[in-house]
C-alpha cells in the first residue's frame, strides 16, 4: 500500500472512493454507496443526514469496520483499516464506540451489565469499572436504573444505555446512528453536551440522523447529506 499517500490523510476517519454493492433479491448487484469521499476529523463532530434508505447506517458500519467496501478504502488515522484482515480490524475496533439504530442491548441483563460489556477486553479492574460506569450513568441520568433489566426500560432510556455503552471506553472514534430518535428535548441537550465534551477531548464523532433538532444544532462542524448513495458536504 502507498504509505506516503496515507500519511497525508488527516487524523480521524476518512473514506476514499468507497463503493458498496449488494446483490438484491434477484441476484443482480445494487449500488448502495457510490464513490464516497469524506474526511471526519478528530475534534470536529460531523453529522450525516439524509432520507431513510439513503445508506446512512451502511456508511456508519463501514466506518466502524463492520463491513468492507466493494472498492475504495476506509482510513483511520491514515491506516487503511477496511483492507486489514479480520484479526487486526477486531483489535482496532476496541477504539471504536458505536450506538446502533436497533440498539442491540443484551435483553435480560441490567443497565450496569450492558454498559460495562465493552470494558471486558480492556482488562479494567472492578473498582475502575464501577467508577467509570457510575460517572457516565450520572451524566446520562441512568444511575437510578442501574440494577434494572434493560427490557423493562422505556425506549429513550434504552437508547441512552446504548449510547453509554458506546462511550464508556472513551473511544477514539464515536459513531452514533439515530441517537436522538427516542429522546425528548432535555435529553437531546444532555447528550449533545456529552458529545461536545468527547469531541473536545479529541474524539472523532460521526452522527447519522435525520432529526431536525440535531440538524439545527451548533455542535456539528461538518454536515453531510447522503442521497441515493452519494455523499455531499453542505455549506
Amino acid at each position: 500500500m502507498n504509505t506516503d499517500a496515507l500519511e497525508q490523510e488527516p487524523l480521524g476517519l476518512a473514506c476514499r472512493d468507497v463503493m458498496l454493492e449488494r446483490a438484491d433479491r434477484g441476484g443482480s448487484p445494487r449500488l448502495i454507496l457510490n464513490k464516497i469521499n469524506a474526511a471526519f476529523r478528530k475534534g470536529l463532530p460531523a453529522l450525516i443526514a439524509g432520507p431513510t434508505g439513503a445508506g446512512k447506517t451502511t456508511l456508519l458500519h463501514l466506518l466502524a469496520g463492520l463491513l468492507r467496501p466493494t472498492s475504495g478504502e476506509v482510513l483511520a488515522d491514515g491506516q487503511p483499516i477496511s483492507r486489514w484482515t479480520q484479526r487486526h480490524r477486531d483489535r482496532w475496533r476496541r477504539q471504536v464506540g458505536i450506538a446502533f439504530q436497533q440498539l442491540h442491548l443484551i435483553s435480560g441483563r441490567t443497565v450496569f451489565e450492558n454498559m460495562t460489556v465493552p470494558l471486558i477486553p480492556h482488562g479494567y479492574r472492578w473498582q475502575q469499572v464501577v467508577c467509570t460506569a457510575d460517572r457516565l450513568a450520572q451524566q446520562l441520568d441512568l444511575q437510578p436504573l442501574f440494577d434494572r433489566p434493560v427490557h423493562l426500560l422505556s425506549g429513550g432510556q434504552r437508547q441512552r444505555v446504548a449510547i453509554a455503552r458506546a462511550m464508556i471506553v472513551k473511544p477514539r472514534y464515536l459513531l452514533l446512528d439515530e441517537p436522538t430518535a427516542f429522546q425528548d428535548d432535555e435529553n437531546v441537550r444532555l447528550l449533545s453536551c456529552l458529545w461536545e465534551q468527547a469531541a473536545a477531548e479529541g474524539c472523532c464523532l460521526v452522527v447519522c440522523s435525520h432529526d431536525r433538532r440535531l440538524r439545527e444544532h451548533m455542535l456539528f462542524a461538518d454536515r453531510y447529506e447522503l442521497r441515493t448513495g452519494h455523499l455531499e458536504m453542505l455549506a
Partner: peptide, 17 residues
Amino acid sequence: QPGVSDRRQLWREFRLE
C-alpha cells in the same frame, strides 16, 4: 497491485485471504 484499492484488487485480496 497492493497500491490500488479498486474493486478487482479488493476482490483479489479477499481471495488470497
